[in-house]
Design a protein around this nucleic acid. Structure first.
Lengths: 222, 222
DNA sequence: GCAAAAGTGTTCGGCGTACACCCATGC
DNA sequence: GCATGGGTGTACGCCGAACACTTTTGC
């Protein structure tokens, strides 16, 4: 026996389950980690909020479906997007077998342009202040948050949460919002500088009665 | 818009793609990391080998499908099994949209009882000596190997590769086979003992003209 | 000149790594 | 008594964490 992809026609007693793609879209705004949610204005689970998602379109690969969702809901492309986990039976209503492939994305809040619709309006919610969610989406979001915290330790994933030029302090605030704790300024700067993820520019930004801050850029992407 | 699981009937221009479950089953035998493969005795990809898998059965969740596959192919239950990644279009034959949810499992070689069939015979292959594979299964296996190496660093995943009682040397050989390099005996023992994954027993095993080895057991599982 | 945020160095403990010898046994 | 694998301790470099003061600017 082998996979359906490998031998589609011969397996006994199978069915073709629903396959959905979910995209947890994170941003950091007002020093808080936020997720994009959409209000369900019709049953089932009417009035609750849910992670953006939808069925796989015809002849569409998973990655392209995730990219499409991101463009549809947040009007952005070309940012951090990674597969998270594939959930089964999130609606836990027998008969079982529904499959939802969850992804998570990181978006610079300033660049996002939310979809405008008459129904199913989207909105940002801080992770520590989520509304009632549909379909066990708490689980999906929490899984995404854990992965994000992990990714942050050893990748430059944060590039996707900030504009092209940013100050060290802004970067630190992003890290603090995600990790949910304050960081020591000196240790943070040393660690980040040693990481090679970012490089200094010759630009500075003055925004108050204090010394202007040097601007940095990510080296790897954007 | 929301997930198919969440709103199955309304998405436009969707299809129900094939959903398969793949299980990469690893074992360590003869000091080598090996994977279970099945020979395809019919087209497509006849004569090539593939990771065990099959279509999701009716009303079956992904986890149960993976557990079932493991029992069918290797005759084992109750071992390390973790979702790996969900691949799209492994057969890369348009029309696209096939979905394969890959898992990986670790099995004690001594406990495995391979399925006996007239066709589609299974066999073990060392990872550094794989036969020609079907459907980009190299990618699946390599992804699994990377995850396994990672898991080994900070979990007790190896519990599933060894019998209930084992010597330090046996454990070290398992680690060495997976990591692909030799380890320092003293450092290995210190690190493992500090990890709390294992505990010493009062049993010893004598198997040659030398000092008998103390047997250990995993604390967390088995 | 003062308020406000930017920027910078040192100390310490834990952890991974390198490395060499004695111990218990079977024959 | 010797060959064979089991079993142990120390020194060092790196990294993350704790911690306080000086610099530059606007008003």
């Amino acid at each position: 026996m082998t996979t359906a992809a490998q031998r589609p026609a011969t397996a006994a007693r199978t069915r073709q389950p629903d396959v959905a793609v979910l995209v947890v879209i994170f941003t950091v705004a007002h020093d808080r980690l936020q997720a994009l949610l959409i209000e369900r204005s019709a049953p089932p689970e009417e009035g609750r909020w849910a992670v953006p998602g939808g069925a796989l379109q015809e002849d569409e690969s998973l990655d392209r479906a995730a990219v499409r969702k991101l463009a549809e809901e947040a009007g952005v492309t070309d940012l951090f997007l990674e597969q998270l986990y594939t959930f089964s039976d999130l609606d836990h209503s027998p008969p079982q077998g529904s499959v939802a492939v969850a992804w998570f994305a990181l978006a610079d809040h300033q660049r996002v342009r939310l979809a405008q619709r008459s129904e199913w309006q989207p909105g940002w919610f801080a992770l520590d202040d989520l509304p009632p969610l549909a379909f066990q989406n708490e689980l999906v979001i929490e899984t995404a948050r854990e992965r994000l915290i992990n990714k942050l330790q050893y990748t430059d994933a944060a590039y996707s949460l900030l504009p092209k030029r940013f100050t060290m302090r802004e970067l630190q605030r992003v890290y603090e919002a995600i990790l949910g704790r304050t960081l020591d300024k000196r240790n943070f700067r040393r660690r980040i500088k040693a990481s090679d993820f970012i490089a200094p520019t010759e630009e500075f930004r003055a925004d108050g009665p204090h010394r202007p801050a040097r601007l940095y850029r990510f080296t790897h992407r954007t």
